[in-house]
């Protein structure tokens, strides 16, 4: 299996020249008129599964997240106590993440904000990054913004994170020596074995990947991409991945939040 993946990627690597040699525009930012969500690159059946609000398996986590949101754990204050029953006050919020936390000056994504709330306002320990509970809460909060166009602030204190994420996106890495941009800017829409290469947007995450057979975070997806090019993956929740998340959000600006997405 590993070998098969490697061979496919190597073949692809051999065919893809760096942008300056091929004369391909770097496409940064990706122009609005060609911007397309990952759903556009799925088979009709997978797309239909995402669109089905009962059968989309991601809703198992949305339901769980809603329950957690409403219930205080171990006598602590519930999320709903501050953010409104049904999370009314958070509608639209997820479209503006990641963002720089005013108090600490650090970049936080939704996972980070939830854990911050737990520690500062609920006297609860932070949840593990890829735990079902953190995924459930993140998916629930993101789902509250479903349909809202992604729009993040990359100015001021966010600028350095944006630059960091941008660098990551355009830097070749791993044994296959591939940058994110080579697949997702220069070759999207083309075939790579059975797949059609997407533009690499994160607007449907946390998403249910058929490959994972579970819901997963955008950082887990980035981790898989790094492994796919045989690069050393970064830790989930790391500053690097949060910076990439910010760059991707800016790059996906205008695309609607789709959480919970279904991906192959």
């Amino acid at each position: 299996m590993i070998r098969a993946g490697l061979i496919a990627c190597l073949v692809f690597a051999a065919c893809s020249a760096p942008p300056e040699e091929a004369g391909t525009p770097v496409r940064d930012p990706l122009p609005d008129d060609i911007k397309r969500s990952g759903t556009a690159f799925l088979q009709p059946d997978t797309r239909a599964l995402q669109a089905d609000d009962f059968a989309n398996p991601g809703f198992l986590w949305i339901d769980r997240g809603e329950k957690l949101f409403r219930a205080g754990v171990d006598g602590s204050k519930a999320c709903a106590a501050c953010h409104g029953e049904d999370g009314a006050d958070l509608v639209g919020a997820a479209a503006h993440y990641p963002q720089v936390d005013a108090a600490s000056g650090e970049l936080v994504n939704i996972e980070g904000r939830i854990n911050q709330c737990r520690e500062q306002h609920q006297s609860l320990p932070p949840l593990d990054y890829e735990s079902d509970d953190l995924l459930a809460l993140t998916a629930y909060v993101s789902h509250l913004s479903r349909g809202e166009p992604v729009s993040v602030d990359v100015s001021g204190p966010a600028a350095r994170y944006y630059e960091m994420g941008r660098d990551y996106f355009f830097t070749r890495r791993g044994q296959l020596n591939l940058a994110c941009s080579q697949c997702h800017n220069e070759h999207w829409g083309e075939k790579l074995r059975g797949d059609t290469i997407s533009q690499g947007h994160g607007n449907a995450f946390p998403a249910y990947r058929l490959e994972w057979q579970t819901l997963g975070s955008l950082h887990r997806r980035l981790n898989d991409c790094d492994e796919g090019v045989r690069a050393e993956p970064m830790p989930l929740g790391s500053d690097t991945y949060k910076a990439v998340e910010l760059y991707l959000a800016k790059r996906a600006e205008g695309l609607p939040i789709e959480t919970p997405g279904v991906r192959r």
Binding site: F54, A55, P57, L60, W61, R64, Q213, T214
Partner: peptide
């Protein structure tokens, strides 16, 4: 009737 349960199988 439709039924779904979270289980990794």
């Amino acid at each position: 009737l439709k039924a779904m349960i979270q289980h990794k199988m």
